[in-house]
């Protein structure tokens, strides 16, 4: 693409990444969560693919699949944390430790240090969705045929 598009993309991609990280990080407080934030981050990968072509991004294919595996393993491992009671038991909620601050019932502005395993699972699923959708887009760009510039 032309130099105008490349310059604008260099400015906009960090903003998209920051917004996706915000949507994932505040998934237990505001609308959004792992799936939505991961899709936002994957859209940044799609923008990079459109602007710079698939040749520049081809080296990151293994990194993306590694990140997706990491997200899936983290998700299942967090689910196994509560195996003492049941699978997917939220052991960290209300425990006072990491993400364990008890929430006052009723309307409140929301506190980041709450939710137990929910924020960690949001991060795992966000990583998985971002890497998964990103690798789908990258594979389509690499092997879909045709000129991608």
């Amino acid at each position: 693409m032309s130099v105008v598009v490349r310059t604008i993309a260099r400015i906009i991609v960090p903003m998209i990444l920051a917004f996706g990280a915000y949507v994932i990080m505040h998934g237990h407080l505001t609308p959004g969560g792992g799936f939505q934030g991961g899709a936002v981050i994957a859209s940044a990968i799609a923008l990079l693919l459109v602007v710079f072509g698939s040749g520049r991004l081809a080296g990151h294919k293994n990194l993306l699949s590694l990140l997706e595996d990491l997200g899936a393993i983290a998700f299942v491992a967090l689910a196994f944390l509560g195996i003492g009671c049941t699978f997917f038991r939220n052991v960290l909620a209300g425990s006072g430790g990491l993400f364990g601050m008890p929430v006052p019932p009723g309307p409140n502005p929301g506190f980041l240090n709450t939710g137990g395993t929910l924020p960690l699972m949001n991060w795992a699923v966000g990583l998985k969705v971002a890497a998964g959708l990103g690798s789908v887009v990258l594979l389509l760009g690499l092997f879909g045929g045709g000129d991608d510039r």
């Binding site: 609308p31 969560g33 939220n90 364990g100 929430v103 409140n108 137990g116």
Partner: peptide, 27 residues
């Protein structure tokens, strides 16, 4: 949900806590 799962977003506490198996299937 606010007290049990400790999150203000009830949708997230349903998706990741009460019905975690559904999210595992989606993944």
């Amino acid at each position: 949900a606010q007290v049990e799962a400790g999150a203000n977003n009830v949708v997230t506490s349903v998706v990741f806590d009460y019905r975690g198996f559904d999210t595992l299937g989606e993944a």
